[in-house]
């Protein structure tokens, strides 16, 4: 992170599955490079031997018993679906 960061906007937008116009790409890349420049301050922080914090208040062993409870009826599960057919969600053809 010591080097000036570069954000490959095409690659990242591809990963994030968001379509962007050329204008948007240019604008976001410019704005975000400024933000990333600011983030550079972290590079100088000594975090040798410091445990990462993934949870603000970590607790352990939160589990539930294996008991099944009926969930959503089919029509409730699909009530917001943009397109459905015979109880299944329709999507454009997926080529594997």
């Amino acid at each position: 992170m010591s080097e000036e960061p570069t954000l490959d906007i095409d690659y990242v937008a591809q990963l994030a599955r968001i379509s962007l116009t050329e204008e948007e790409k240019a604008r976001y890349a410019k704005q975000l490079s400024k933000v990333l420049g600011y983030f550079q301050e972290l590079a100088a922080v000594d975090t040798e031997g410091v445990e990462p914090t993934a949870h603000a208040n970590p607790i352990f062993d939160v589990m539930r018993e294996d008991v099944a409870v009926d969930g959503l009826p089919q029509e409730r599960a699909l009530m917001n679906a943009p397109k459905q057919l015979d109880g299944e969600v329709v999507v454009p053809k997926v080529i594997e």
């Binding site: 539930r64 008991v67 099944a68 409870v69 009926d70 969930g71 959503l72 009826p73 089919q74 599960a77 699909l78 015979d86 109880g87 299944e88 969600v89």
Partner: peptide, 17 residues
């Protein structure tokens, strides 16, 4: 989550939110 699972049920009947 506590939704049941078994093979062969009608589509989208073993779900919850």
């Amino acid at each position: 989550t506590n939704a049941p699972y078994y093979f062969g049920a009608e589509p989208n009947t073993l779900t919850n939110a």
